[in-house]
Simulated assay, not measured.
Amino acid sequence: MNVDPRFNQQTLPPLVVMTDLDGTLLDHHTYSYTPAIPVLARLKAADIPLILNTSKTAAELEIIRKELENSAPYVVENGSAVFIPADYFDGELENTAQKSGYYMHVLGALRSEILELIHKIRIDKKFLFTGFADMEVSEVIAHTGLSETDAILAATREFSEPLIWQDSARQLLNFEALIANHGLRLLKGGRFVHVIGACDKGKCLHWLRERFTNSCGAQPAFVALGDSQNDVAMLNAADTAVIVRSSQHEPPVLEKRSSIIITEEIGPQGWADALTQILDETLS
């Protein structure tokens, strides 16, 4: 298996690519990434880190990263925590804990704290929603299309809780305001609304950009790819933002006004087309 290099003063990468998974690198319905395979090989050959930044759990990403032969840092549960292989950068990393061969930098809240709060609010205010903690594995499968094994991994959350909102839009705004008073945020993803701590995918990009800059002595250019509202902070924080078209919703609106690519194709085909264009321009 090819391994991403250790980054130091001599190894500033030509780019750093950060990507969402569901609906972006992975097809929304089938979770296939077949159209992206040639581009994944090209990134590896050019020693360009591919950082997965997703709503998925660390347990889910362990399987996906092995399949992709990916050993770069990665971000779990919508920016809640960053995991960095212990030997990836020179020196130790501040404000991190060591866990199973990784440095872990937590930006979010613990799931136990989230569940305690939202269950209390649900009873007090009579909100109608169903979270992963309320579901049997069969229900997770029904709502996600995942296999039984993958559904179990998806339920092993540490820093967030996905909800199926079954109440009105007005009640969702009320719920969002109430959890904000306790330092929590609501993010709308492709299938669920996610309750997380005071974090987002963009804060993780900023934090990792600083780690690369400190280790390599210069700041690399970040390309970010995503398809939905929970990717907006990451896309705004990137040097180049790629909005991958979705079959499920309109492209999200960004604050930034330059260096934005909106793909023609959806999902992994759009992902591959955009990165091919960027790599042709960067590596020529």
Rank of each mutant, 00 (worst) to 15 (best):
A198K: 03
Q9F: 10
L225Y: 03
L107I: 00
A272W: 07
D231M: 04
L115I: 13
V3A: 09
E250K: 13
N236F: 04
I164Y: 13
S147E: 02
A109L: 02
T54Q: 03
Q277C: 12
L21R: 04
E281T: 14
H28C: 06
E161Y: 01
R245F: 06
S112L: 08
R157M: 02
L12R: 05
L52C: 04
K126A: 12
V195M: 06
V106F: 01
A274L: 13
L61D: 01
A72K: 03
P14Q: 12
P49K: 15
A36M: 12
I37P: 11
D27I: 06
S246Y: 07
D167W: 06
F7I: 08
A237W: 01
L146D: 02
S284W: 14
L40R: 13
S228L: 03
E116T: 14
L187P: 00
R65A: 03
I266H: 14
S246G: 11
F129M: 12
Q9R: 15
L115M: 09
A198D: 08
S32A: 15
L115K: 08
P35V: 14
N174Q: 10
A109C: 01
M18R: 03
L68N: 09
A36N: 15
S246E: 09
E158H: 05
T144D: 00
H119T: 10
D231Q: 07
A46K: 13
A169L: 10
E116C: 04
K126W: 02
F129H: 09
C199T: 13
L205H: 04
N214I: 11
L235A: 07
Y31C: 07
R185E: 03
Y88H: 07
T54Y: 00
R42C: 11
G190W: 09
D280P: 11
I63P: 01
A154V: 03
D124S: 13
S138Q: 10
A237R: 00
S247T: 12
V16H: 05
Q229W: 11
A46I: 12
T156K: 09
N53V: 08
E250H: 09
S100K: 07
D134A: 11
D227F: 04
S284N: 15
I196R: 00
V232Y: 06
Q166V: 08
V16A: 12
Y102F: 09
F132L: 07
P85S: 08
T144S: 10
G108W: 04
C216S: 09
G197C: 01
S100V: 00
A233C: 00
L235Q: 04
G79Q: 02
